[in-house]
Simulated assay, not measured.
Amino acid sequence: MTESTFTFRVDDSLKAEFSQAAKAKDRTGAQLLRDYMREFVRQQQEAEAHEAWFRREVQAGLDEANADKVVSAEEVEAEAAAWRVEIQRKLNGSAS
């Protein structure tokens, strides 16, 4: 892995407070900044992966709807009603 220097400007008081806080954690400011950078990159990659997955799922749903592969509201309600009856039966059975 090759390394490069990352230089940026920061308020003197913030730099001093950050260095002091890093030292209290037995870390250098550079170590913490590298950790923060890695974490930020990881979060962005996860967000991008989730966004891609979400878009694929939405497109799959749209494709199914466009192909008339849908479940009617009546079918969903009938299945939910049967599920509620079954759950209620189990709850009544366990209360005895």
Rank of each mutant, 00 (worst) to 15 (best):
M1K: 07
M1V: 12
E3W: 09
E3I: 11
S4K: 11
S4A: 12
T5D: 08
F6N: 05
T7I: 10
R9T: 13
R9I: 12
D11S: 13
D11Q: 15
D11P: 10
S13H: 13
A16L: 10
Q20V: 08
Q20I: 03
Q20C: 06
A21H: 05
A21K: 11
A22D: 03
K23L: 13
A24Q: 07
D26Q: 14
R27G: 02
R27A: 02
G29M: 09
A30Y: 08
Q31E: 08
L32M: 01
L33D: 00
L33Y: 05
L33E: 00
R34H: 04
R34Q: 04
D35N: 04
Y36T: 03
Y36S: 05
M37Y: 04
R38V: 06
R38Y: 07
E39T: 09
F40D: 05
V41N: 04
Q44I: 11
Q44V: 03
Q44F: 07
Q44W: 09
A47F: 05
A47T: 08
E48R: 09
E48V: 07
A49H: 02
A49I: 07
H50F: 11
A52T: 05
F54L: 11
R55G: 00
R56M: 03
R56H: 06
E57S: 05
Q59K: 01
A60V: 01
A60M: 02
G61H: 01
G61D: 02
L62D: 08
D63L: 00
E64M: 15
E64A: 14
E64S: 11
A65G: 13
A67K: 04
D68N: 15
D68H: 15
K69C: 06
K69H: 07
V70N: 15
V71S: 07
V71P: 03
S72D: 01
A73E: 09
E75N: 12
V76T: 14
V76A: 10
A78K: 07
E79V: 14
A81L: 14
W83K: 13
W83H: 14
R84N: 11
V85T: 11
E86G: 05
I87E: 08
I87Y: 09
I87G: 04
Q88E: 12
Q88A: 08
R89M: 02
R89Y: 04
N92C: 07
G93K: 13
G93L: 11
G93D: 14
A95W: 04
S96H: 06
